[in-house]
Computed example of a mutant assay.
Amino acid sequence: MKIKNSIYIILISLVFASCIPNKDLVYLQHTEKSNRENEVNEVVSKPYRVQTNDILTVSIKALDQKLVDMFNPSTSQNQNQNQISQQNLYFSGYSVDDHGNIRIPVLGDLNVLGYTVDEIRQTIEKKLLDEYFNYEARLYVTVKLAGLRYTINGEITRPGTNVLYQDKATIMEAIANSGDITLTGNRKKVQVIRKYPQGYETYTIDLTKDTAIESPYFYLQPNDYIYIKPLKQKSWGTGTTGVQTITTIITALSLITTTILLTRNL
């Protein structure tokens, strides 16, 4: 009788230990630090400052477009702007070299390292007005990053390198764009490796708590590397849900029982 009770206790312990609790799967759960569930949180994201190997798109327009065509990159006139791919942006955009410069037709080298895209736009406008045009030309300059490029690996549905074509994006959007974290992915210890001029910095963010939105790593930056660690339940191999665990244990016990019976009959 004691042996049976011990077996039952072991089985129940295995079921509870191997199952993934709901609190480990839900994103941005309410914590004690938050006063109200519907409170408005201040955005802590700072303007991104351009680094080497970034790709910028620069568009210059004027009342007479022919006057500024020479400043724009040589792209196909028939190409639809909505159909520009990442490959086209690599060839037609302005890549920031190791010295932090981009090379614009006629204007030549322009240092952009450490500047925001708005500061770069103002610099280009000023340079054009001072050296080539006057105010009546009605210049309109647009400077953008050629998408937010990131790489995500580990316990994610679709690992790999992706690009989000928007000015700002969160790590939650990057994860959703990659098919979400798998059941065996550790949402409490998501690693973000971020590139800086002086090197790389690694940070761990807990996406199960709503305080994650206060982290500066909650907002994506170009060339971020995101790694989703696996939970211990994956290495145990007993299943991620109660049904899977019970099925695995029953299968194992059936195999053991069959082996014992066959051994006795020999």
Rank of each mutant, 00 (worst) to 15 (best):
L145G: 07
L145P: 06
A146M: 08
A146F: 11
A146G: 02
A146R: 04
G147C: 03
L148S: 01
L148N: 01
L148E: 01
L148Q: 02
Y150S: 01
Y150H: 03
T151C: 04
I152N: 09
I152L: 08
N153F: 15
G154T: 03
G154I: 07
G154V: 07
I156K: 09
I156Q: 03
I156W: 08
R158F: 15
R158K: 15
P159F: 07
P159G: 00
P159T: 00
N162P: 12
N162R: 14
N162F: 15
N162Y: 15
V163K: 05
V163I: 13
L164C: 11
L164H: 10
Y165V: 15
Y165M: 15
Q166K: 14
Q166M: 11
K168I: 15
A169S: 08
A169Q: 05
T170W: 06
I171Y: 04
I171P: 06
M172P: 09
E173T: 11
I175E: 01
I175N: 02
N177Y: 04
N177T: 02
N177G: 02
S178F: 04
G179E: 05
D180C: 12
D180T: 12
I181K: 02
T182N: 11
T182G: 09
T182E: 12
T182I: 05
T184K: 10
T184P: 10
T184F: 14
T184H: 11
N186S: 03
N186I: 01
N186W: 03
R187M: 08
K188F: 09
K188P: 03
K188H: 08
K188R: 12
K188I: 04
K189S: 13
V190Q: 08
V190D: 09
Q191G: 10
Q191E: 09
V192M: 01
V192G: 01
V192W: 01
I193H: 10
I193V: 15
R194Q: 03
R194I: 00
R194A: 00
Y196K: 05
P197L: 06
P197F: 06
P197G: 02
Q198I: 14
Q198G: 11
Q198H: 10
Q198W: 12
Q198A: 12
